[in-house]
Design a protein around this nucleic acid. Sequence first.
DNA 1: GACGACGTTGACGTTAACGTAAAGTGGTTG
DNA 2: CAACCACTTTACGTTAACGTCAACGTCGTC
Lengths: 146, 146
Amino acid sequence: MSTPKPEATLAVNGSLSRHRRTYSIGELARMFEVTPRTIRFYEQEGLLAPERRGQTRIYHEKDRVRLKLTLRGKRLGFSLAEIREVIEMYDAMPDGNARQLKRLLEILSDKRSNMERQLEDIRLMQRELDDVEMRAREVLERLDQN
Amino acid sequence: MSTPKPEATLAVNGSLSRHRRTYSIGELARMFEVTPRTIRFYEQEGLLAPERRGQTRIYHEKDRVRLKLTLRGKRLGFSLAEIREVIEMYDAMPDGNARQLKRLLEILSDKRSNMERQLEDIRLMQRELDDVEMRAREVLERLDQN
DNA sequence: GACGACGTTGACGTTAACGTAAAGTGGTTG
DNA sequence: CAACCACTTTACGTTAACGTCAACGTCGTC
């Protein structure tokens, strides 16, 4: 209760946030090296919900964080649907009923074991790469000695 | 030269192998929980090249290992094309020219940094999950106390 | 010798995640 | 004011990685 949290992650405590900055879609796109089309697509899929000034989208810190998390999730092989599910449940958390919350914990547990497996996969794959690289270097060395 | 390698990985030293077993496509499919269709598709994409007895495909240890590596690669987000590229180069290694070998090392280095990033992503994502889970549990507890 | 399990090829269908092109809007700058 | 951005919507196109279905061959066995 009294210990101040280091920083909010998924949610940015809006009004108190130091970052009063906003972003255009193009800025965000360059920041993360994606196209505006991608960002719009994520919105259409319910992953983002930027403010509008007229027609134009205005992105806040919260949106930027979401995009970042989305892209990270993607790199880990999660589908946009999965990512959205987590985001939606997170948003619904404060007033979420017990069933929803338990479902959320279930999903999180799933993601966790998924990542455990990925860690193992990465370890194994790294050994493979080590092995292949070693052999390749051996062959190269023999070529050089001619 | 004299130190015996613990075990071959990508390539199985065929004739000396203890495993003289072969597999049908259905067996392999069940082992890895994929459909036969998937395995045939991988062959069509140049990832597998099983022996044929008449029409029927016969898979050896080497093919099984390849399939395993392929699926692992997939879980790490590599495309079939990328995986094939590595496999092809590996096969061409013994008589590979220097250019090919250097290109292989390059690819391997790419994969490595890719995986480094994934490791970092996983670490970050795990923190996110911890955070979300904590909050969810807090909310749940308050609900239980009513 | 019919049946079921398993295998084959070929072709078309499907889904996710965008790309791309067209056509229009709104601001600012020379 | 014209030209040029950056942004918008709509809509159709594309690619990877299979799924699905049809139509057929080949066993073992009841």
